[in-house]
């Protein structure tokens, strides 16, 4: 697949940056002329992935979060959210609905929502080294909408 455009932002794992990250990703995605529904899905998925870095990757410290957005041919939007935090022992288990290590502050539905709002979700993680979440969504062309 041919890359058409890309951008990256890096920020500290402060919760105030959750809103910044989803808004920035949505502004970048706007060049694909998405519908408001598509934009809202993208914002929600980015919010889930970035919140996971803030809450789970760096529970007791501030760390670095990288969000990379890319556009490929045929209006494919790819969003990568990466941290260098504590990582996930069992990714398959973590992706199950309602699985959470966060107690009653969390719902355990983050990965489920990323999966249902995006076309593809890939999660790679190494305990102690960090986590990378890659999500893809094809933005439908106007004629087809």
């Amino acid at each position: 697949m041919k890359e058409i455009n890309s951008a990256r932002i890096e920020f500290l794992s402060r919760s105030a940056n959750e809103g910044f990250a989803r808004a920035a990703a949505a502004v970048f995605a706007s060049q694909l002329d998405p519908t408001l529904d598509e934009l809202s899905d993208i914002k929600t998925a980015v919010s889930e992935a970035v919140t996971n870095c803030v809450v789970h990757a760096y529970p007791d410290e501030l760390g670095k979060i990288l969000v990379r957005v890319r556009i490929f041919e045929e209006s494919v939007l790819e969003i990568t959210v990466r941290d260098w935090g504590r990582g996930i022992e069992d990714v398959q288990k973590a992706r199950e609905p309602m699985f959470t290590t966060g107690g009653e502050e969390r719902s355990g539905m983050g990965f489920t929502i990323m999966e249902s709002f995006m076309d593809k979700l890939r999660v790679r993680s190494l305990p102690g080294r960090g986590t990378t979440v890659v999500m893809r969504r094809t933005i439908l062309q106007r004629e087809k909408k």
Partner: peptide, 13 residues
């Protein structure tokens, strides 16, 4: 204007 799964936890609480 916006809600994600963190909002679900708020509602359940």
């Amino acid at each position: 204007a916006f809600m994600d799964s963190s909002g679900i936890a708020v509602i359940l609480k």
